[in-house]
Nucleic acid binder design. Structure first.
Lengths: 246, 246
DNA sequence: ACCCGCAGTAATGTATACATTTTATACATG
DNA sequence: CATGTATAAAATGTATACATTACTGCGGGT
């Protein structure tokens, strides 16, 4: 759902990709109605693949079907965005608990620990500055590894679904932000939570793992709320903020 | 998503409805590939609304897109079905916790208590037999009221999504079953949990509400597992069992 | 026996014409 | 002034022809 399965071979895949970019980049604001004809013309394709692309993005949760037909770019209040992050925490918590209770292989644990080491390496010797790009990358890897540890297809699927909302992705708020001090501290806390989470899973402490994952998401949630989306005309680097209207 | 918003006015809505029935009734087994042309011919419509209907059912989670195009009826292992019920419990638990922590109106509490009374009335004086039909109906009402108490659109939406899997619906296993004694007792337990859940929400005991809702779903989960789906050629009355293959 | 490639067939992908419904506007009416 | 209604415009719904891609089975090769 999230990955680029789009081989970009046919018009529909290309259209889906393009449209998704428009939405995530904020080229079309939340609440905007998408007209088949307009979309088709803009992408220089016929209405059929345009419609199909919109259907797929509706499946992804980026668009909404209107009762009378057609699609609207889904819009989210700040509360919705915060709730989406919290929900990710709930589901990651469930995945973590299931992984802990069912047990995971040595190889999976080791792979996760390697990611943790990579994340540790992103913090400089002085403890002050850090490599945001790499951190963001390995952070995504860590969260993917967590999902893979849960053997429930159903839980994995719903988790992927929630993560496909751009601002609910684990790495959504990991970017170089202007007011860096507090944010930098929150990353240190987050990384500590990563370590504890891996440990809890390894020790098969299900409840602990669940609660750490939840709290970990709330760290991200706090970053969203302090970012004050609509006010400061926040960095466009942050994906999907155009969908947050209220 | 679950409700019949389908006005049945146009071909697509009709096709969506028909196809959904086929799938839930088990007329097409899980894993079956649905060919546009075959579906279109069977419903005496053209390929376009047939395709559109399949896209919508994919959105609902009843169909899956194949990589090379086209759709397959989604199939679930028994574990998947059990996980889906557990996931419903997780999400209902989250809804219950949020409702408890945020607080709900007097009117909402009273409405839920009325439903509880209606459910109580389904148990006969003797405590032995009961009205399954009514119980099933009011049980669905109770669970809907619970969802409504949660003010998070995001959580509500995902919960509705999970509930749209036919066997994950709260009332899925509330039917007159042959081996009635143990099942009947489980309904008594379930009703007790309903009472406790309402009380916890009213008292704003978030964690308690969450845990009761989880445990409540596990009661349903146990009913699924004892039903031994593939073995006894279980009652066709139970919806969506045809999707459970393993 | 197994693998590979090459049709032929059957499916999905795409464009487009036409049908139907929705929506916007102007106007009449209480 | 508000409300409802008629009507035109513009959107989506539907069917279908044609294009392209995926599947299947056969035959040749090693």
């Amino acid at each position: 759902m999230t990955a680029d399965t789009e081989t970009r071979t046919n018009q529909t895949s290309r259209a889906t990709y393009e449209l998704r970019q428009w939405i995530i980049n904020g080229d079309v604001a939340g609440g905007t109605r998408l007209r088949e004809i307009a979309v088709a013309e803009k992408l220089k394709i016929s209405r059929t693949p345009a419609r199909e692309a919109m259907a797929r993005l509706a499946e992804e949760g980026l668009l909404e079907r209107m009762g009378s037909g057609g699609f609207v770019v889904r819009s989210f209040s700040i509360r919705d965005a915060a709730d989406a992050i919290e929900l990710r925490g709930i589901l990651e918590g469930t995945a973590a608990r299931m992984a802990a209770e069912e047990g995971v292989s040595r190889a999976e644990i080791d792979a996760m620990k390697e990611t943790l080491a990579n994340l540790d390496a992103c913090f400089l010797e002085t403890g002050e500055l850090m490599d945001f790009e790499k951190y963001s990358e390995f952070n995504a890897v860590f969260h993917d590894q967590l999902v893979q540890m849960c053997k429930s297809t159903i839980v994995r699927r719903e988790l992927e679904r929630v993560k496909s909302l751009p601002f609910a992705s684990p790495s959504a708020f990991v970017h170089d932000q202007p007011g860096g001090a507090a944010f930098h501290r929150s990353l240190i806390v987050a990384q500590q939570q990563h370590h504890e989470l891996a440990q809890a899973i390894e020790n098969r402490e299900g409840t602990r793992a669940e609660m750490i994952a939840r709290e970990h998401a709330r760290t991200a949630r706090a970053n969203l709320l302090t970012a004050q989306i609509p006010q400061t005309g926040v960095e466009t680097r942050m994906p999907g903020v155009g969908l947050i209207v209220n």
